[in-house]
Structure formats: structure tokens, C-alpha cells
Amino acid sequence: MCKISIQGLTHIYNYGQPGERVALQEINGEISPGELLAIIGPNGSGKSTLARHINALLLPTCGSVTVDGLNTADPASRWEIRRRVGMVLQNPDNQLVASVVEEEVAFGPENLGLPPEEVRQRVDRALSVAGLVEQRLRPPHLLSGGQKQRLAIAGALAMKPSCLVLDEPTAMLDPAGRREVMQTLLNLNRQDGLTIILVTHFMEEAVLADRIWVLSGGRLVMDGTPAQVFRCREALQKIGLALPGPAELAWRLRNCGWPIPDGIYRLEELVTCLVDLLTRNRSGGSS
């Protein structure tokens, strides 16, 4: 369980210095325990900046972020916050510390002071969930881009956090890997109650979340269910986002007068709806 509360969060890089840049402005919101929240937004809108605030990698210029009531600005809470909130960074290279994949994954659990057999179990499980068993004895810095991304996920999972923040974890994965990772995240969320915050440019992934935050220019401009957010095609396009493919096709057909109901965002939904429409149409036409 993990409850995150963000109040009046503003982040200014290089505050009061040359190169000052406002990256987040007055963000307010709460993330409930067990929730799967997707954060989407154009390049430079502040997604990574926001993600880093949640486990105290960055501290607010103004406002506050709390995790289960612990304030990220309080140095005494920082260790506990990082134990509860796992983080998969956007650039997986930055996270590497060990010389063998296995050790890399064991690093966190060992630092928690867990007994060796527990560490072993966690490492094996995390590697298998992340699909890296074959690479377990390779040096991490010599992995391919996608393999590094999987490694970062394994490392975070081995910590058994109660909340996981992932910054574009599937950006460099092949389609099968993307599907597997999303399925893993959904299982962890639905079965183990893990709170998940997922930053992504894949609208198909955002659709799977309970709720979506849309950032633009450092502000939280939309907060709603996938259905609520993806109803706003024009507003999303205006800031450089798009509808998931199936929703886009549904919109186009609807726009040509097809009686396609609202709320079609996934492939299966579109298939059901089209089969229904087209078979009715054909049997109607042939009689």
C-alpha cells in the first residue's frame, strides 16, 4: 500500500541561476494505494521531473510531495521513501553499479540487509519476470538497449517496493517485450496491489491504466480515466499527443457517420463493434 500526495508542486531547475527553467508548475494530485496511473505528455512537458519527485531524487522548489505521509523534503524520511517507492529511470545506463547482471539485481536487496537465501530468491524471480535469465552472468554495461531496460525493471522488482515509478520502461523494447512488461505490471498491480506510476509515450499502454494524467508545459492539464482523456482527441493532438490506434480508427469511422459508440479504445472493443456493425449491415443488405 502506498499513498502519494502532491501539493502545489513547482520545480525550477537552476533556480536563481543562469539557465533557470520552470519544469513543473503548481501540480496538485493524489495517487491512491493500488492505483495504476499513467502519465503522458509531449517531450519536455515535465514527466520525468515529476517522476523523480516521487522517490525524492528531486526536491520541490515549492510545494510538497508525501509518500504515506512521509515528506520527501525531510532528510530523515528519504531512505524509507526510497525503500517504498522503486524507480526505473528513463536512461537505464545511469542506474548500473555492478559488473554482472545478477549482482546488479542483488545490489538493492543486499543493501536492505536481507539474508542471502532471500536475496537469491528475489534475484531469480526478478530476472525471470523481466526475461533476463539467459543474460544473468553477462556484464550489464555490455547489454543491448532493450536488455538494459529489462535489467532496470528487474532491479526495481527485486526491492519489492509498494510503489513502482517507471519512466518509459518499454521505449526500447520489441513489441513482444512491450506486451510482456505491460502484462507483468498489470499482474503486479491487480494481484499484489502494487501502486504503479507509468510514464509513457505509448497511448496503447496508457489505455490500460486506471487513470491518466496529462502534462503539458509543466502543468497538469487533464486528470481522468482513459475514457475521459481519450474522448478529447483535439485537445490531445493540439499538444502533440494522439489517440491509441483503435480509438483513432473508431473516431474516423464515427466521423463518417458510422454508428460507433463512444468508449472504444482497445483493439478487442473495436473488433466486437465492427463485427456487430458489418454483419448486421451485410445481412440487412442481402435481404
Partner: peptide
């Protein structure tokens, strides 16, 4: 393609699904 970790584009997939439903 799926056997080697890839996939077909979504529109392609959609058409296969419709075909399977007899359209």
C-alpha cells in the same frame, strides 16, 4: 513475426481478427 518477438501493425491485426470472425 510473433515467434521472433515482433508483431504486425495494429491495422493488420484488426483485419486478421475480422477475417477470423468470417468477414
Amino acid at each position: 513475426l510473433r515467434a521472433v518477438g515482433l508483431d504486425v501493425p495494429m491495422p493488420c491485426e484488426l483485419m486478421y481478427c475480422l477475417q477470423q470472425k468470417g468477414l
